[in-house]
Design a protein around this nucleic acid. Structure first.
Lengths: 159, 159
DNA sequence: CCTTGACCCTGGAGTGGCTACAGAGTTCTA
DNA sequence: TAGAACTCTGTAGCCACTCCAGGGTCAAGG
């Protein structure tokens, strides 16, 4: 199987496959006389495994670890458990902040329900209000969490 | 105000402030005799505005556009409306895929409820099953969307 | 006066997970 | 036999920072 066929079979871009090889997510395949990569069923399975994990947004470094674990079937599986648990926690935390984000944006959008000039635009007005340290429709609380980092918003010189 | 004070006042990292300057999100401030940046209230407000937008996960390119809009108060505000609407749609799409992700990971975690060896681990088993084109607990459908791109999972050589 | 430590400067590299491209060679199809 | 379609390598770009090296500046304490 050539790289294009593997790509078609898995839906993974050719460039991405080569990238995974560079990143040592799977061993370099044998080469044909012309230098083309020749893949077998093993590669197809491993690539599907990787994409399945990526679909769960598991980072490549963790996928590498999972692949290593798979070679030691007698070891205890606590690490795998832990890895999935961590991933779930990450997703839940992100979900929480995304929900807040959705509320804030929906609230902000409400500020502009008619066609008028930028000078009168409620949206821009709200965004600018925040820059003056005033309370704003979108951020009632002063501090909230984005991407796991504490970010201060809606405040200003008064802090 | 020196950069450290601006940083303390807004909660924005010093490096990030310099980065915003490089990215032309605000004009370079005047310099003191020693070369230190000297900021005023305008910078503080603009930086707060930027962070407020970033807290809404509005990309820097869009923030640049918003800042340009703000200089034209008589123009119609349709573009601003549209920008926020697009952002809301983006967030909602992402939210939807995150919710699916959460379900899938929670389902996957259930597969391993006891301490045993990697060879017997239900989680790894499920992940490997996907690579064989079998149905898996985490992905009942064959195809779903991640980050706006179509990704094929849970299938394999049979496609 | 000297040291220490906190601050500031520039320029460049690194992060993750791809994606895109240049410039070359190879193979398939009409 | 021409041209399209594929493959190769190597490198750079994307986003929004973050970190570092190697230097300069400044105030407080001994």
């Amino acid at each position: 199987m050539r790289i294009g066929e593997l790509s078609a079979a898995t839906g993974v871009d050719v460039e991405t496959i080569r990238y995974y090889e560079r990143e040592k997510l799977f061993a370099a395949p044998v080469r044909q006389a012309n230098g083309y990569r020749a893949y077998g069923t093993i590669h197809l399975e491993r690539l599907s495994f990787i994409r399945h994990c990526r679909a769960l947004e598991i980072p490549l470094a963790d996928i590498r670890r999972l692949l290593e674990f798979a070679t030691q079937p007698t070891a205890p599986c606590g690490d795998i458990d832990h890895l999935i648990e961590e991933q779930l926690l990450k997703v839940r935390a992100r979900l929480k902040s995304m929900r807040a984000l959705e509320r804030q944006l929906a609230e902000l959008r409400k500020r502009c329900d008619a066609h008028h000039s930028i000078g009168e635009c409620g949206i821009l007005h709200e965004l600018v209000a925040a820059a003056h340290g005033e309370a704003c429709a979108c951020h009632s609380a002063d501090v909230f969490v984005t991407k796991g980092r504490r970010v201060i918003v809606g405040s200003g010189p008064t802090r």
